[in-house]
Amino acid sequence: MTDLPAPPLPRLARLRARFLAAPEPAKRVQFDRPLLPWLFLLPQLAVIVVFFYWPSVQAITSSFYIEDPFGFGSTFVGMENYGDALGSAEYRRIAGFTAFFTVMVTALALGLGLLLAVKADKVIRGRSAYRTALISVYAIAPPVAGLMGMMLFDQHIGPFVKLAGWFGWDMKVGLNYWDTAFAMIVVSVWKQVPYNFIFFLSGLQGIPAAVREAAVIDCKNGLRRFAGITLPLLAPTGFFLLIINITYALFDTFAVIDVMVKDKPANNPITLVYKVYLDGFRGNDIGGSSAQSVILMLVVLVLTLVQFRYLERRVHYG
């Protein structure tokens, strides 16, 4: 086995191999002065410390206090802020919706992105025009997407609402919980599909023609070929996109939600991150909001660990 020359690995796998490989002592000493590597690392470390570690520590500290918004007085309350959040039926309802929203947005955005990529991969005439049209949506900033969604689904002037009316659907975004949820999911998915499309398309183009041709000879059924050959080869891309899409649905949809509920969520669905913002920045409840953000941080941590631990094992890199 070991005598055979190693096949050329894709970049990600090569990187991974390098991390996993035993350290080679000869190569480790690359800098004459021990300070130099730290100097190179410094900008990156500074960014992480200033924008991640420091705020995280602050959030954890203030989650144990109930604090005056202006920072004059605070009372140590231990785990009370956590108890208040987790004990509240409203918080649990929002957590439930967040899970539902994340699954829907991730599944639909990945599914549609993949479908469009597979179809666009087959187009020969005018392929660049198609692709540009599909990708261009990605250039729209989330608040703008939210604004477009708001217009599209406006109770009084929204064209989509009129369309729904023809089918007997009396759509009331902003009033009816599930109508608003529907609008939010549509806008969030629409915004994310092009991103997935780009990655899936480049993933598809990375599959060697020889493999595809061999598959055509072996199997006539296009669907089976797709399931048996294309999909496994796309798995690394898919895994990467899965993580990105979950993060997107959890956090980056904030602007879409903010614009669509117009600052007044009332009984409309919101996600956990919006609740953190609502309590912290609207309600000036810094302790409670910090506790919620710590909970969210833990959820994401667990989710990421699970993904890498269990899901990545099934993914084959090249």
Binding site: L175, A266, N267, R282, G283, N284
Partner: peptide, 13 residues
């Protein structure tokens, strides 16, 4: 302001 948020939620309901 937070109490208003609760009121708004309940009115919708």
């Amino acid at each position: 302001p937070q109490i208003r948020v609760i009121e708004e939620r309940e009115y919708n309901k």
